[in-house]
Design a protein around this nucleic acid. Structure first.
Lengths: 182, 182
DNA sequence: GAAAACATGTAAACCGTTACATGATTCC
DNA sequence: GGAATCATGTAACGGTTTACATGTTTTC
């Protein structure tokens, strides 16, 4: 058997998919749903990306595929992570350094060229972002209440969500005040 | 004259490039340099993207191109924003809502699947990110010292940079402590 | 009986990145 | 003589968005 164990390092999308497969075998459809409700906050590949990646993982020996016939539903293909897949994911996590922050922020770009519009328009856009962040902050609080406090890893991701939302809110409040005072 | 004033809304890269062209006519090479030293912190298109976008802006009537022969340097093409270009950029800035936060964060993905590796490895990765943020924070302070305090718009972008760095640092410190204590 | 949600995928167009390619000039 | 700067582009790849395709079950 000659699976192309090509040892290329995983893309972030590969890692996200292998990650949810590490929780159990599932179809592409289920991968999508699982991603959306979990890691989707930090990496949410498109459905078509998932369907494109899964066969490639099989090709590289990182997962296996098994066709499952269904009577009440369309047939599906269930993917299962392999030992090699787990190892590749572990290697991806440990490979240092982590790619730097993306830092692509269209709103900030608007602010940067803000002199082309009015302070009010800009303040409105910033306010909208703040309201978003406030909603997100509340959502994190709700998650926090329900969550298992011993699960360090999801606790840390929630902590980042709260810290980030907080930064947005602080910045936006100050920016709105400054812009509305012109 | 039939410039295709196709009214499609600009991509973020288009906006960034039109934005620097709004400061004065320049070649693709100079656009790249200018972007890198200014808006690059929030949106830094690749060189190849710039060279691809510029002719399209001309095609759409948002900029004009003029070839300039040089004796001591390779010839170059100087682009100048048009009135339509300015209008399109203004429309992009004012179009609401601003696209939501990208939120694609490979480091957080690593944290999310952190149980596949050791707490130390994870803490090291987080520490690296913190050091990065600390460097950035200092850089912002330096910019702050040199900057014109009356320039609201760049002040606001710097303020975001500081607030963001602060959030990273606070989160990373807590995360590192929690992970190293296992 | 209709609409929405479930369930599974494919295909094409678009945006952007990294790496490849070329060649002159200036600075050390 | 080698590195950095000036100057412009192409090709291959990763990923997203949107649309196409098909059929079932649940909800109103």
């Amino acid at each position: 058997m000659t699976a192309r164990t090509s040892k290329r390092t995983l893309t972030t999308t590969d890692a996200a998919i292998l990650g949810v497969l590490s929780w159990g075998p599932m179809s592409g459809y289920d991968v999508k749903k699982t991603v959306d409700s979990t890691v989707g906050y930090v990496w949410g590949p498109a459905r078509s990306a998932i369907y494109a990646v899964l066969p490639r993982l099989v090709d590289e020996g990182l997962a296996t595929a098994r066709e499952v016939a269904q009577s009440q539903r369309p047939d599906k293909i269930v993917y299962r992570i392999t030992t090699a897949g787990r190892a590749a994911l572990k290697a991806w996590i440990e490979e240092t350094p982590a790619p730097p922050d993306p830092n692509r922020n269209p709103l900030l770009l608007k602010v940067f060229f803000g002199d082309l519009t009015s302070p009010e328009v800009l303040a409105d856009q910033i306010q909208a972002r703040r309201l978003e962040a406030e909603r997100m902050s509340e959502e994190m609080d709700r998650f926090e209440a329900e969550a298992d406090p011993d699960d360090v890893y999801t606790a840390l991701t929630r902590a980042w969500g709260r810290e980030y939302a907080r930064a947005v809110i602080r910045w936006a409040r100050a920016a709105e005040a400054r812009l509305r005072a012109s």
